Amino acid sequence: MKPYVYGIDIGGTSIKFGLFNRQLQLEKKWEIPTNSSNNGESIFGDIVDSIKMHTPDLSQIEGYGFGVPGPVLKNYVQMCVNLGWKNVDLQDRLRDELKNDHIVVGNDANVAALGEAFLGAAKGRKNVAMLTLGTGVGSGIVVDGRLLEGHNGSAGELGHLTIPQEQPIACNCGKKGCLETVASATGIRNIYHRLNEDFTGHSTLYDNDYVDSKAIFDAAKAGDKLAISVVDEAAYYIGYACHVLSVTTDPSVIVIGGGVSKAGEFLIEKVTNEFHRLVFQPTNDTVIVTAQLGNDAGIYGAAGLVKIRG
Rank of each mutant, 00 (worst) to 15 (best):
S37H: 11
T181F: 02
G106M: 10
M130W: 02
I163M: 06
A235F: 02
L26N: 07
T162G: 12
K176I: 11
I308M: 14
L58M: 11
G298L: 01
K16W: 04
Q23R: 12
T200L: 14
I288E: 15
S229F: 07
R22P: 10
Q23V: 12
W30E: 10
D218I: 03
A155L: 05
I299D: 15
M53C: 07
G258T: 01
L293Y: 12
L98H: 13
G12H: 11
T248H: 08
H276Y: 14
E274Y: 03
N82S: 13
K307A: 05
K270Y: 04
L226I: 05
S36A: 12
L278K: 13
G106W: 15
E233Y: 09
V260E: 06
I51A: 06
F275V: 04
G134F: 05
Y300T: 03
L305I: 01
K221G: 00
P56L: 14
G70Y: 06
Y237E: 09
A235L: 03
E274P: 00
A241Q: 04
V231D: 02
E233G: 06
G18P: 01
D96F: 02
A215P: 02
D101S: 15
K262L: 03
I47D: 12
S203G: 07
I15E: 00
G18F: 12
G40D: 05
F17G: 04
T283E: 08
N208S: 15
D218V: 05
L205F: 11
F44D: 00
Q292F: 03
S252Q: 09
V211G: 00
G7L: 05
L267I: 07
A113S: 13
K86T: 13
V182E: 09
V68I: 01
N35Q: 15
T290R: 08
P71W: 10
S59A: 09
V279E: 06
E149G: 15
K126C: 14
D207P: 02
E197R: 09
N172F: 02
V68E: 04
A235V: 00
R125N: 13
A215D: 15
A297D: 00
P3E: 08
K74C: 14
V81M: 09
L94G: 07
L26C: 13
T272F: 06
Y236I: 00
N152E: 15
P251M: 04
K262F: 03
A122K: 08
S229P: 09
D224I: 00
H243Y: 07
E31I: 00
P33F: 07
L26A: 11
G67I: 04
K175G: 08
I238W: 00
A241F: 01
Y300I: 01
P56E: 15
C80A: 07
L94F: 13
E116P: 10
V104W: 07
M1Y: 11
V105C: 11
N208M: 12
